[in-house]
Amino acid sequence: MKFSLDFRNMVNRDNNILQLIMMTVLIFIIMTALSPDKFLRYYNFESITYLFPELGLLSIAMMIAMLTGGIDLSVVGIANLSGILSGVMFHYLNRELGMEQGVPMVLLGVCLSLGVGLIAGTINGFLITKLNIIPILATLGTGQVFIGLCLVLTGGPAIVGFPDAWAFLGNGKLFGIAVPFLLFLLVAGGIAFLLTRTTLGVNLMLIGSNPRAAIFAGLKKSRMVLYSYMLSGVLASMAGIILSGRTNAAKSDYGTSYLLQAVLISVLGGTNPAGGKGTVAGVSIAVVALMLLSSGFQILRFSNHLIDFIWGAFLLLVIAINAWKNRAR
């Protein structure tokens, strides 16, 4: 009862969510109709639960940067750098120090990854709040630096041979459910709570809505924006852990196409790129919708490139419809 009320409230407040759900259902129905026997197989949905968390986390990271009217073009760089640094560390510990490839080492790796995300996010936040570089240019630059560091560390080819426990984070199963999916639910829930129920979240919304008024209202604008990029960085590094765990490899140019997709998904999920508006639920549904779309087309034997085409067209269409609707009002 309480939940349903909450839910209705949420839908009422933000009919974007309702529209997204309708869109997702529609995609589901169309895909089912096109190839009922293949699309509805359990395996298909299971593979989606492995694939979408990394993109979902990157999209949420993007959304958080957009809440204050910014953008984070360095998320993929951070993700790859986290994975690669962990890989490098694992090899070093294993070969040079003879440390066992067990859980302690993986925990160390997780700490390292998240630390990388935190530091990278702090650098972004510092450039944006202290040096007043606009976010798109600051993160464009740092993104190059992070990917560049990946190249320096690997020399080009992928780092392979991650410990099993690490791979478990990316392709393991717990209680019959994909581990990355569980991680995603946990993190997404946490972020949703953070954005709606904590001072940080409300601060970010207010700052994004009107940065000047935020100063006059006595909000600690610089610090909050800094926190938001740190958070964005940490989320990106989580995506990096899952990505390298799932593929059991890390490379400087993995997931390059994720960057643009993350931007588009967060906008599609109802985030206002000018700031002040965005929900975890919206972004998550948008990711799921697009994943259903692409898995459906994959079953129909469309090539990945063609699916990119459909994504682009689909996103433009939806955003255009939204713009059209808002203008009519």
């Binding site: 997709q261 588009l264 000018a274 490139h305 699916i307 990119d308 085409f309 682009g312 433009l316 955003i319």
Partner: peptide, 20 residues
């Protein structure tokens, strides 16, 4: 629409069309 979003979309569309 914001040019960044538009050009992100058209870019991925055109490239997807070309390769696909």
């Amino acid at each position: 629409m914001i040019p960044l979003i538009v050009t992100l979309g058209t870019g991925s569309m055109v490239r997807g069309f070309l390769l696909g």
